[in-house]
Amino acid sequence: MDRLVYTAMTGAKHILEQQATTSHNLANVSTTGFRAQLDSFRAVPVLGDGLPTRAFVVDSTAGTDFSTGSMQVTGRELDVAVQGKGWLAVEKPDGSEVYTRHGSLKVSENGILQTQDGLNLVGDGGPITIPPEVSIEIAKDGTVSTIPMGTKPGAVQVIGRLKLVNPPEENLVRGEDGLFKTKDGTAVDADPVVTVAGGMLENSNVNVVESMVSMINLARSFELQMKLLQNAENNASKASQILTLS
């Protein structure tokens, strides 16, 4: 009887983990550039005496849905959306390079072009410094240009270019901070094919309807595992009564 208990227990445990992942996706449905997490499970037959009719649930490597989200027009000069495949390269405080699709940028108090989380954008020559009192324009190829503001605007000045990359998706892993990096932690070269659209942001690629349906299915599967545990308890109780009578 304990075999049924352990089999149902593993199923319930991993269903709860999948519910947590689905809940995390739903919580980030409005997060710019978010990539939905995917859970993958596989059944492993239980080896032992008797027929191989039982199976345990085992986690496979958690994956990521890299499909592109919808585009939202903002009109803000510091908003950029990567078109198609590709990533924006940013630098973490420890100097490592990571990648994001969150294109809502800002200028720090020191004039450095950063993400909303305060990470420096990587340019072709390092961090991109924005001079004061200028209007900023980001071209399709990631080139950052400025125009002095005032009654007599000056000429357009190119101050840098965003590092746009497109590493193989199977070589990317999600960090605990939600940013992606290569499996070996090394930086990748810029890809001239990757383009961005100014004044736009990419929405999350989480499908709300599919996620809600998945939550319902998972809840029903969890109830099924609980019923199996109750049946095992009832069978054990009946067996104890029979043994007591004998």
Rank of each mutant, 00 (worst) to 15 (best):
V5L: 13
Y6M: 11
G11H: 04
K13P: 03
I15W: 01
E17C: 02
E17M: 09
Q18I: 01
T22Q: 07
S23Q: 10
H24M: 06
N25G: 00
A27D: 02
A27Y: 06
T32R: 09
G33W: 07
R35T: 00
Q37E: 15
F41H: 02
R42D: 01
G48M: 04
G48F: 05
V57S: 03
V57H: 01
A62L: 14
A62E: 13
D65L: 07
T68S: 13
K85C: 00
W87R: 07
E91G: 13
P93N: 10
G95D: 11
E97I: 15
S104Y: 03
K106V: 14
E109G: 15
N110M: 00
L113I: 07
Q114W: 05
G118W: 12
L119E: 05
V122F: 04
P127D: 11
I130L: 07
E133T: 05
I136Q: 12
E137Y: 08
I147S: 09
T151K: 07
P153A: 13
P153L: 07
A155P: 10
V156G: 08
Q157V: 14
I159S: 05
R161Q: 14
N166Y: 09
P167W: 07
P168C: 05
E170I: 09
N171F: 05
V173G: 02
D177K: 11
F180Y: 07
K183E: 02
A187V: 14
D189W: 00
A190N: 03
P192N: 06
P192V: 11
V193A: 14
V193C: 01
G198E: 07
G199T: 13
M200H: 10
S204E: 14
N205M: 04
M215T: 08
M215N: 01
N217A: 11
A219M: 13
R220Q: 13
S221W: 01
E223C: 02
Q225D: 11
Q225L: 05
N231I: 09
E233N: 15
N234A: 12
S240L: 14
L243R: 08
S246W: 12
